[in-house]
Amino acid sequence: MQPKEQAVPSSTYTAVLTILASTVAVIISLLVALAAGLLARADNASWATAVNRGGVAFAATLTLLVLLVSTVAGLLT
């Protein structure tokens, strides 16, 4: 009699997917922040204003993407 093979629990896959999606969310947020800062600078804004706009864009994008990731992760569990 052979022992039964144990499958990897779906919660492990969900955790890996959540970590991967969170990493992608941070990278996308950084790219949005960079674009916002560069566009502000191209609009003749000061360095402080450009960094501020980039920071606000980063925070807003990251908030929306983390909400999306957590919703999808909740649906998968």
Rank of each mutant, 00 (worst) to 15 (best):
P9E: 09
S10A: 10
W47R: 07
G37N: 03
A60F: 03
T61Q: 03
A57Q: 01
A35H: 06
F58K: 00
T63R: 00
A57C: 04
L75F: 13
A60Q: 06
P9N: 05
G55K: 04
A21R: 05
A59S: 12
K4A: 15
S70P: 00
K4G: 02
A36S: 07
L17S: 10
A42T: 06
V16R: 14
A57L: 04
V16P: 01
E5Y: 09
L34E: 04
A15P: 01
A73D: 04
F58H: 00
E5K: 08
L65M: 11
R53Y: 05
S22A: 13
A48V: 03
A45K: 14
R53H: 09
P9D: 10
A45V: 02
A48N: 08
L30M: 14
N44L: 09
A7V: 11
S22K: 12
L62I: 04
I19C: 07
A25T: 04
L20D: 09
S29E: 06
V26N: 07
Q6R: 14
Q2L: 14
V69K: 09
L68Y: 13
A36R: 01
L75R: 13
L64V: 15
I19Q: 14
I27V: 15
Q6A: 12
V8T: 12
V32A: 08
T23W: 08
L30I: 13
S46A: 07
L20Q: 14
A21P: 01
A7I: 07
L65H: 00
G54P: 03
V69W: 03
S29D: 02
G54V: 03
A36T: 03
G37W: 01
L17N: 14
T23E: 10
F58M: 01
V16T: 13
T71I: 13
L62D: 05
F58V: 01
T61D: 03
L67M: 14
S29W: 02
V51W: 00
G37Q: 02
I27T: 15
L20T: 13
L75Q: 11
L39Q: 02
T14C: 13
I27M: 11
A59Y: 01
G54H: 02
L17M: 14
T49A: 08
T63K: 03
V72N: 06
M1H: 10
F58R: 00
N52M: 09
L34P: 00
V8Q: 07
L38Q: 12
A33H: 01
V24D: 06
V8F: 11
T12L: 12
T61P: 00
V16F: 07
